[in-house]
């Protein structure tokens, strides 16, 4: 069974639910602490889980990105292994220069800056943009809308170089965009775009598609019972019709992990 290393720094707090989301997709997942880089080498994929590594000191993800364990993750990413960063994991991947990953040598090309309206914990709607671009999204349909919760204060994709954004868009590296429940554009409007991200970007991949940084939490939308009843769109209807019988019924985030599993099993 393909093995996923769920990386936990001091302050990471989503490692257990991240393991469960992987396991629900048929993957073998194990928590690996930040000071155990040797344990990473046997993994087939890496999942930098959410939380507040190093208490978000200096900038969210900034200190974790300097740790030796990211040397190993960078090498794995360069070798084509899947690397997923959710929330604080996404912040760490951007601070490590792995996303958007346009230039060689991993310079920092974007930032996940403070939200325009501070810390927010709420459900958002994500539109799947380029499912074929990333191995994490292949099972989604282009334009599919999925409700996924966010919980962050520093999740606003931004860059000091407008050319970077143009190249990211041209390459199709935007995996998920904040959108209205019917899939129409947010155009930066709050609260549909809850943090003010450029281009309404909620998730971004590298050019090869093996590294994905996503701010909302797909692992918290992996089971239907995790969804609130008041959601709009088809997922809200499914949740309201759900009688609680089948506890393992999949939520909208499950396909991300199933896409990863399909890739890993296909590669095996």
């Amino acid at each position: 069974m393909p093995k996923v290393a769920v990386l936990a720094f001091p302050g990471t707090n989503c490692e257990y639910e991240s393991v469960r989301a992987c396991e629900a997709a048929g993957l073998d997942a194990e928590i690996v602490r930040w000071n155990e880089p040797d344990k990473l080498r046997s993994a087939d994929a890496y999942f930098l889980a959410g939380g507040f590594s190093f208490q978000d000191r200096v900038r969210a993800g900034a200190i974790g990105a300097k740790e030796a364990v990211l040397d190993e993750v960078s090498r794995a990413a360069d070798a084509g292994k899947p690397v997923l960063g959710v929330c604080n994991g996404a912040q760490t991947l951007l601070e490590a220069g792995l996303v958007p990953g346009l230039a060689a040598g991993h310079p920092l090309e974007m930032a996940l800056d403070s939200n325009a309206h501070g810390y927010l914990c709420r459900w958002t709607y994500l539109r799947v943009e380029n499912p074929a671009q990333s191995l994490f999204t292949t099972l989604y349909e282009k334009g599919e809308v999925i409700p996924v919760p966010m919980a962050h204060a520093e999740g606003r994709f931004t860059t000091g170089d407008g050319e970077i954004l143009a190249r990211v868009e041209k390459n199709g590296q935007v995996a998920f965009r904040f959108a209205k429940s019917d899939g129409s554009r947010a155009d930066g409007d709050y609260p549909v775009n809850p943090n003010g991200a450029l281009g309404d970007i909620a998730g971004l991949t590298n050019p090869k598609g093996n590294v994905l940084a996503v701010m909302p939490h797909p692992e918290r939308a992996s089971w239907l019972w995790q969804l609130p009843r008041e959601l709009e769109g088809p997922w809200g209807g499914r949740r309201r019709a759900y009688n609680g019988g089948a506890l393992n019924e999949a939520g909208p985030g499950r396909k991300l992990f199933l896409s990863l599993a399909a890739h890993l099993k296909g590669a095996a």
Binding site: A62, P107, L108
Partner: peptide, 16 residues
């Protein structure tokens, strides 16, 4: 100058 992962830390030029 944190324009790369190493050697800087204090200011990410894309937001600071």
């Amino acid at each position: 100058d944190c324009s790369a992962r190493r050697p800087g830390l204090l200011a990410n030029p894309h937001c600071e």
